[in-house]
């Protein structure tokens, strides 16, 4: 393959024609070490410390969510449109739902109004007792 005229046999052709900026190899070695250290610590922490932290965060979120929902449930007051919409997907009728949403305690005025409307006298109440 090689003879005296073989141009590729010249030793100077095997020399490296490329160069690098001054101080490149020192800086690139440091950069590689830093990059890989970060990569290493991301991987280690990713599998070691992050999982319990994420689990704890999810548990906190879950507890907070349950708390908020139960508070909202206690305060919930349906308006009539909500009830109409909800009645479509519920086994209860609109009226049942409306009745469920009304406050259980009646005021004194409402009781008197009811008694007048039904014609109930004080005597008849006393007689029943």
């Amino acid at each position: 393959m090689r003879n005296d005229k073989d141009i590729l046999g010249r030793p100077e052709l095997r020399k490296n024609p490329y160069t690098v900026p001054d101080g490149y190899f020192n800086s690139v070695k440091e950069s590689i070490r830093i990059t890989d250290r970060n990569y290493h610590s991301r991987r280690r922490h990713g599998t070691g410390l992050y999982i319990p932290a994420i689990a704890a965060s999810l548990a906190l979120l879950l507890l907070a969510g349950i708390g908020v929902l139960s508070k909202q449930e206690a305060k919930i007051e349906y308006d009539s449109i909500d009830l109409l919409v909800f009645s479509d997907i519920s086994e209860e009728s609109y009226y049942d739902l409306q009745a469920m949403s009304e406050p259980e305690e009646l005021s004194e005025e409402e009781i008197i109004e009811y008694l007048i409307y039904t014609g109930t006298t004080l005597e008849s109440i006393e007689t029943n007792e």
Partner: peptide, 10 residues
């Protein structure tokens, strides 16, 4: 490439 310092044969 500004970092190529070879001759024409290279």
């Amino acid at each position: 490439d500004p970092y190529f310092n070879g001759d024409e044969i290279q």
